[in-house]
Simulated assay, not measured.
Amino acid sequence: MKPLAHKVAIVTGAGHAKGIGRAIAVKLAEQGANVVVTDLQQAAADMDSAVTQLSGLGVDAMAVAVDVMDKTQIENCVQRVLDHYGRIDILVNNAGVGVGSPDFTELTDQDWNLSLQVNVKGMADFCQAVIPAMQAQGGGSIINIASLAGLGAIEAIPACYTASKFAAIGLTKQLAVNYAKQNIRCNAVCPGSIVTQMHKQTLEFIAAEHGISVEEAQQHEDASIPMGYSAEPSVVGDAVAYLASPAASYMTGVTMPVAGGMSPGI
């Protein structure tokens, strides 16, 4: 039997076909979990595509439009999942934004508000909504997608993004302590250089800043990675599937870098 057979997972921000959220959803489905994908309403077509892909892996899949800045939408999503499946075993908080200028003096209130509202408050609200169900059923696993920027400052990353990811890790560790005795594990995955749309935007900024091509910016970044390359989103999915599985049953409060050996400091 697959390690996550009959488990029910919610993965936020899972619409984009090439994104980390979709890769996580696929890996969980491959391990046998029924998966609920969420994203913004404007990504409805992408979510439908995700459901088709996941259903093709032999599991039950469902899409729910959720803006994580709206607590009511989060609560309605959780209730809908409970009504349909009767339980929630895994929550993966992947929804996030990367906004703002790397120049700290150019950051706006909107940059800060959006970063904190989505990357921290939305994550906290989803945790708050699922924890009572996990308590009632005797346990569960929460996995928060943070960033290597939550472990140390990285060049060309906006301060509002870095601060929000540090906060996400702090939230993870506090929940791990609070709910360990109730068999609710809470861990964080900290991706490094992963080939996504956000990664492309960072490379474009570096290229423009230094007057080089995007390809040269990628080569420069690869040279800073001990393993020598930027990875596909599936590697993050592998880490999440492990943390959600019984193999990680004694792990909580962990911040797991998935970064090819990169290790930034403050």
Rank of each mutant, 00 (worst) to 15 (best):
G170F: 09
V97G: 11
D109P: 15
A188W: 03
K121C: 05
T202R: 05
A241F: 08
N94P: 00
I143W: 01
V37N: 04
E155Y: 06
V36D: 11
M123R: 08
A9W: 08
M256D: 04
A43P: 01
I154H: 00
V59N: 02
V130C: 04
E30K: 13
L243G: 04
V37W: 05
S245G: 14
Q79N: 12
V8F: 01
L203N: 02
A239T: 13
L57P: 15
H199M: 06
G13D: 14
T72R: 14
Y161Q: 01
I169L: 07
Q219F: 00
V177S: 11
A61W: 11
G253T: 05
M262Y: 00
D103R: 13
K2N: 14
V177P: 10
P264H: 04
T202W: 04
T105S: 12
D39A: 08
Q197P: 01
K181P: 11
M227Y: 07
P3M: 03
Q201T: 09
A43M: 11
S224M: 05
I145L: 07
A241S: 13
V64Y: 06
T196W: 02
L203C: 01
T255M: 01
D39I: 01
P191H: 06
V195G: 02
D125Q: 13
V118S: 06
V26R: 12
A244T: 09
I74M: 10
F104T: 12
A124D: 07
K173R: 15
G21I: 07
I10D: 15
I74S: 10
E75T: 12
G13P: 06
Q137H: 10
C127R: 03
L107H: 07
Q117E: 14
I142A: 00
L243T: 06
A259Y: 02
N34E: 06
I74C: 11
C190E: 02
T108W: 00
I142C: 03
G13Q: 13
